[in-house]
Design a protein around this nucleic acid. Structure first.
Lengths: 104, 104
DNA sequence: AAATCATATAAGCCTGTGCTTATGTATTTA
DNA sequence: TAAATACATAAGCACAGGCTTATATGATTT
């Protein structure tokens, strides 16, 4: 799970859409294809890229495979981004507000 | 400046290295090449990709061009990432600490 | 004005990526 | 046990991406 792999994984619009859908809850590959004009192997390949990048995790359930977001992947992007904290000062107030809301 | 462009821009190790170097301070293309085994056009092309993605900004100074990080680009990644706040709860405490430090 | 310097652009090459169809492999159902 | 289901893997194709060399452009120096 290196940085190049996860940025490459997120550089594809279809994969970002899959990732966003998984943020709403775990799902198997067949259900994920709903709304995408994409063959079954294409989806399978996208999921493999996201999994290799450490962005999603999988769990076998009989002949189905449930996919879900891997929090470690998200944390890793955040850690990378935090090196550049100094460059988004205008966002700090928004973030303070967000944390305040999360406390309630 | 769309999401695909900036994730693609950061998906290349050389471009991430350039971006990180610029985080230390603005610099022109010739100075940026120091330490990279890269032709002048290759660096120029990388800078164009970063600029198109909105990650860096340029400013002409005579026959030199100074490059620097564009805070809007960093803010944009942060905004994208903030959709997945729910997935890095362990980071929230670190962030609170950071904001506390910034207030001092 | 001519030479030099900093950078950009053009064209071509090779590799990587995303797609497809075809096929393989478990697992479940009839 | 045979058929169907859910998914992965393989092979091949078309296009995108990163590199190179060659050349253009504009600013500076001599």
């Amino acid at each position: 799970m290196n940085e190049t792999e996860f940025f490459k994984a997120l550089a594809d619009p279809t994969r970002r859409a899959v990732f966003e859908r998984l943020a709403g809850g775990e799902m198997n590959a067949t259900d994920l294809r709903q709304g995408f004009d994409l063959s079954q192997p294409a989806m399978s390949q996208h999921l493999a890229v996201l999994r290799t990048a450490g962005l999603i995790a999988e769990q076998k359930h009989g002949r189905n495979v449930l996919y879900r977001i891997n929090p470690d992947g998200v944390a890793k992007i955040h850690r990378w981004l935090s090196r550049y904290n100094a460059f988004w000062p205008s966002r700090v107030d928004d973030l303070k507000q967000l944390l305040k809301e999360m406390d309630q």
